[in-house]
């Protein structure tokens, strides 16, 4: 993320906002490779529950991760829409299955805050910090941590 910040500018950073459950999350835009609609996913038996399966993204095999499960949220109801955000981690591609994708926001670094101490430790572990937006709070997702915590 350090490089990402520098390459934009030193004062602000762009985030892709996503929703999981009712919560708004932000992923640094430079980490995002792709945004996909719901894809056919091949299930991987015996894989950790967070792994939804794998899918073919233009000839590359991408591991799909169910973010709801990573965040210990209940599974989506049937028929509910989902989207995917493709990120790269350790030279492998992951497709994060989330509920919806929102805008890209440019946020001032000065506004970045640490997580409140009362945040669920599981969540605190998966985020770097928080931005206070007008209507809601934006939790910045630590994608690497999220993926490393699987399994």
């Amino acid at each position: 993320m350090a490089e990402a910040e520098e390459s934009v500018n030193n004062l602000s950073e762009d985030f892709l906002t996503i929703t999981v459950g009712k919560q708004l999350f932000g992923i640094p835009v430079l980490q995002v490779q792709d945004v996909l609609r719901a894809q056919d996913v091949t299930k991987i038996p015996l894989a950790p529950p967070e792994i939804a399966g794998s899918l073919n993204l233009r000839g590359r095999i991408v591991t799909a991760v169910d973010v709801r499960r990573c965040l210990s949220m209940p599974d989506k109801e049937a028929g509910q829409n989902s989207m995917s955000v493709v990120v790269e981690h350790n030279e492998e591609l992951f497709s994060l299955i989330i509920d919806n994708v929102g805008d890209v926001l440019r946020l001032e670094k000065a506004d970045f805050e640490r997580n409140p101490g009362t945040l669920d430790p599981a969540w605190r572990d998966l985020s770097t910090g928080i931005y206070q937006l007008e209507k809601s709070l934006l939790i910045i997702m630590d994608v690497s941590k999220l993926l490393e915590n699987i399994g």
Binding site: T42, I44, P45, G151
Partner: peptide
């Protein structure tokens, strides 16, 4: 990497119909 622990699989591939 994340699936390396699954000894039942030696790899994965994309089939002719595009599915993994």
């Amino acid at each position: 990497q994340i699936l390396k622990g699954l000894t039942l699989f030696s790899g994965n591939t994309i089939l002719g119909d595009g599915s993994v």
